[in-house]
Design a binder for these strands. Structure first.
Lengths: 231, 231
DNA sequence: GATCACCTAAGGGATACTACGTACCGTGTT
DNA sequence: AACACGGTACGTAGTATCCCTTAGGTGATC
């Protein structure tokens, strides 16, 4: 009960600050229309599971409102977040039969769910649909490839700077935005501990690179300086 | 001159131990045929660049013999290897106009190069080709996703164990094989230093998990024990 | 006042950095 | 042929450092 209420308020806070999708809207129009026609609206409350690792991949999802994280877990609880998805983003596309990540709503979220079988059937006859499916997977691959050098070869400072730059690019107001995810989520996305993330945020604020009016609200004071901190 | 001779001998050593592609051959047959018909055989000597980061992606490649690494570089020389490719593997497919990694031959290598434009044109009318392109990208995404939890959340021991398991699965003789890459390549693939890789190999040999008859030849004494060391 | 998320501090451990040593191979010299 | 030389790759050791672990504290929300 208490948790529910808290979830709702935080979800509202996160949703009050609109993000746009990675991709210019125009490029996805054909696919978006197909999705929009066939889609089924599904609501998920904060922290609810949308699908689980190794479950059959029946649907492809597109976020209407809210935000989603995908992640893998190790036995002992270690977690690696694969990606954060914001309104307009498509997720849940798989090559094999099963999902390779779990997906959870980070805030109260509404998604459009489209049957995977419907899409693959359409792709058989419509080259544009087939190309869209490929493009979405390829863009995801590009992003993960960038993440690899981050996780394998970057310092804590570089990781956080890169993360802030990414979130800035994806938000409407590039110099001030609200993070839809917790410090723990950020840590598990960047391969750091929550303490290191916190310390790095504090250090950046002391050096006047950013301001943190509240823990989830970030104001970038110099996007150029931030860009110089990562490759 | 000296370098040339050395390259040749090491290349021969690497090639003498055949690897097979990740993928069951059957699954790629249609695509392989297309590739084989249109392809142009290109030879590259050891350490030669096949393409560079940010160059236009004109060709898609399939390895006939030898082996290839793809990588990203940071300004200060830090390197992250994206993947190792062995005979039968396809690499160089991009969603955008340009390559996002550089590719180098690890040994003297022969590849089949197919014009990217030819493939995308074919995909317009042939749904099977379109699906193959998508599948190759998707399989690559799956692999990189596994790599993420390795780079973000795994210990040095787990990374090396996982690497050896992967190479074992890709080699014909799963309990004894020759590594086509140097220790530095392994380090840059796993996000470790060369010293840590060396120490971990030595430690595994002391604990009788593996034997190292020569620095590049690995004999797995217990594949089950190795599997238990990673997730 | 209780709970949760976040932050800070202190100590320890795993990994990186630096430097040096060894093995191997091909080549040139005697 | 025997030997020394130089280059490359790899291994080892010691130190340094970064980050993690543990613990405790603060502030916001309800």
């Amino acid at each position: 009960m208490l948790v529910q209420a808290k979830q709702a308020s935080q979800a509202a806070a996160a949703m009050s600050y609109p993000f746009r999708a990675d991709t210019p809207a125009g490029k996805q129009r054909g696919f978006q229309n197909s999705l929009d026609l066939m889609g089924l609206k599904l609501p998920f409350s904060r922290n609810a599971e949308i699908y689980g690792q190794a479950e059959p991949a029946e649907y492809v999802y597109k976020i209407l409102s809210g935000s989603v994280r995908t992640y893998k877990l190790l036995d002992d609880g270690r977690r690696q977040i694969g990606a954060f998805y914001l309104p307009g983003d498509v997720f849940g596309i798989e090559s094999g039969a099963n999902h390779r990540f779990s997906a959870e709503a980070m805030a109260d979220t509404v998604v459009l769910a489209v049957k995977r079988a419907t899409l693959t059937a359409l792709a058989q006859t419509d080259a544009a649909i087939a190309r869209e499916l490929w493009q979405i997977t390829a863009r995801e691959l590009d992003h993960v490839h960038d993440q690899m050098i981050l996780l394998g070869r970057s310092s804590a400072q570089e990781r956080v700077a890169s993360f802030l730059a990414e979130m800035s690019e994806r938000s409407e107001n590039q110099s001030e935005f609200v993070l839809p995810m917790s410090r723990q989520d950020i840590a598990d996305y960047l391969g750091l501990t929550i303490e290191t993330v916190s310390r790095t945020f504090s250090s950046m604020e002391r050096r006047a690179l950013i301001e943190l009016p509240s823990s989830r609200k970030v104001r970038l004071k110099s996007r150029a300086a931030l860009r110089n901190m990562h490759s």
